[in-house]
Nucleic acid binder design. Structure first.
Lengths: 363, 363
DNA sequence: TATGCCATCTTGAACGATCAAGAATGCGCT
DNA sequence: AGCGCATTCTTGATCGTTCAAGATGGCATA
């Protein structure tokens, strides 16, 4: 901001009007003027009106929020940290739904919402340093990110969303593993025996390709690992092993990335009869891939997504997917934070399998 | 935030560590500690290391952002005001693209971004009062909104996006009228003579239905009015009059709303051979409507959208639409604001008609 | 008349930092 | 020796508000 009112400057005329100015112009105390704005019951109505009127006339803009924040120790603002930058945050339907939930609670609560993009780590660190917030909600930030520790350093209340478990920090999430187990079991019950998996990223390094043991061991995103475990839980119980080349990791949550992954998986011999996808966008990409390979969904290949974003119901064929309450997750995160983010808080939201048109018994 | 460090309280142990504490613990001045963080060149390296180390050991969390903001008069944060609430902001693809542009500039600039939802006017007024920002970007807020004047009252720099023209305030936008004129001319050149329009809202009152002269006269959203004028410019030149029942207003920018509007328009006798839509989402809804009415696009009816969101290229048939640089609009808005939002700043970004598959000569 | 209480307004002290100006020191140059 | 200058650190004031506690006067109650 270039157009700053000059501070510490010779000309006092440039300084903006303050409580004190209004007070002395009226011959009352600062507190009285302050009360006129914040505690109308603390002074007579006539005086209050007089104060407000005079303030308007003098061009007073109301109590300065920053000064108030300093004095009260509250900013009435929460910080929301996203990994993957805002391109991700504002493009991924699941992230948007989460954001909506957070924002709704903030609005209801009269709390501001400051977005802290964590794309460039350097920028993010600066932001965390300078951001005036009362607490943080962290969404989809890898455990290893330096911003993570920087935020913990601030000593402010923190709520983690979609992290597995983090001792000493409030978390909200879903039972990823259980949800995936259930979805896989459903496919097993339909008779499927050969599976492929399109996985979200295990670590924020842009790796693309099959997922082996060593990669999983070093995972910094809990979500991918937990979901993969869930798939395996059910498969193992059915005596089926998921080989590493049956799992394709795609760091980008986009239809095109999954399209490509699905083509890889569906070209294997023997071909899987079912694809498990860790997001609906991935699932939609998989549908396209099957289509271009001349495979019918669900007759030739069943596809299961994750999230149940609005698109899942609209796409043709409509998507069988794991529903998770995305907006509610955001709401709960915000509520936990506003309630002080007690370190022991752990909220697990329910999921359910929504069966639509992309699943059927194998041919 | 419940978990507040107690202020003005008996127990001094509860107070958090400040610059002063670190300074006196080390026997140096506050300024020196401050400089250790902010101006490393102002003190010897050894002392600096000693200070930082001691600060860490004492649990000092770094200079308090709020105190700094008060002293420097800068918050390094911009406020972004959306109308229609966040449900709109985070769901409308055009709004998201704009937001991305704003966020990208903020990130590059080390500036925070505070979202001020303007859904509930009461909440929004509170937010504007308490938000610590250096300036505002206003997007899609009706001129008549009380928040509008509340923001102007703050005296902070303001940039308006997608407003026609606003004397004394910086604006960024596109030539809506010219863009629509061009799109219409293209349809005229193809041979079309009967038109229908699906319009965005003229005022934020939820009105749904045909648009007459009186409604247009009271418009509080400039965009809709400007675009409709553009359509008319071309039509009038071709000697065609747009009757009021050829224009259907739908306040909601959704496929379903437009679907319904398109069914109304396409049921008229004689049936229009071309539909002009003020958004791509509306256009997509219109395609569906034509489909269910058994009309082929573009053979039976041509459809033109507006925005050129990513979906426009992906939908089948792909959409002929007016491209506007949405993200760039957000960027420019942020840049103007960061540059001081000079009241005379007026930025008009280029648009262009992108011809795809939804337009053809009438049968 | 004394007492207490309520409503209304004032006072002085924070909140935690940054800034402008000045002091102390050492060093080199003439 | 005297001067200037750069480096490093300190001092006092200030940003604009809110808070706790106290002062004042009026009115009712005892």
């Amino acid at each position: 901001m270039v157009q700053q009112k000059s501070r510490n400057q010779a000309s006092p005329a440039a300084r903006s009007v303050t409580l004190k100015d209004v007070a002395s112009a009226l011959g009352v105390s600062r507190t009285t003027v302050s009360n006129a704005y914040n505690r109308p019951d603390q002074l007579s109505d006539e005086l209050r009106d007089k104060v407000i009127l005079k303030a308007k006339a003098m061009g007073y803009r109301g109590p300065n929020p920053v000064a108030r924040q300093l004095r009260t120790g509250r900013t009435a603002t929460v910080g929301l940290v996203f990994s993957g930058g805002l391109t991700f945050a504002f493009e991924d339907p699941a992230a948007i739904a989460f954001l909506q939930g957070v924002a709704a609670v903030c609005e209801r609560n009269g709390t501001g919402l400051t977005i802290v993009p964590a794309e460039q780590e350097s920028a993010a660190e600066i932001m965390v340093r300078q951001a005036a917030v009362d607490g943080y909600i962290i969404y989809c930030l890898p455990r290893t990110s330096p911003i993570f520790s920087r935020i913990l350093d601030t000593g402010l209340p923190v709520v983690l969303a979609d992290y597995g478990d983090f001792p000493g920090i409030a978390t909200v999430g879903i039972d990823d593993r259980g949800a995936c187990r259930e979805a896989t079991q459903y496919l097993l019950d339909l008779g499927h025996r050969r599976f492929g998996v399109i996985a979200l990223e295990f670590s924020a390094d842009g790796y693309t390709g099959p997922v082996g043991v060593e990669r999983r061991a070093l995972a910094t995103f809990d979500t991918a690992e937990a979901r993969l475990r869930g798939y395996e839980d059910a498969l193992v119980r059915a005596g089926i092993t998921l080989t590493s080349d049956a799992v394709e990791e795609r760091p980008e949550n986009s239809e095109t990335a999954a399209y490509e992954a699905a083509r890889v998986l569906l070209s294997r011999n023997p071909r899987p009869t079912a694809l498990l996808c860790m997001s609906d966008r991935h699932a939609v990409g998989a549908i396209h891939a099957a289509d271009t390979l001349g495979l019918k969904v669900p007759d030739d290949v069943s596809i299961v997504g994750f999230d149940d974003v609005p698109m899942a119901a609209h796409v043709r064929p409509s998507l069988t997917t794991v529903h998770q309450p995305l907006a509610e997750k955001g709401q709960v995160a915000a509520e936990l934070l506003l309630a002080g983010a007690h370190p022991d808080s752990r909220r697990l939201l329910p999921t359910r399998l929504v069966v639509r048109e992309t699943t059927a018994p194998p041919a």
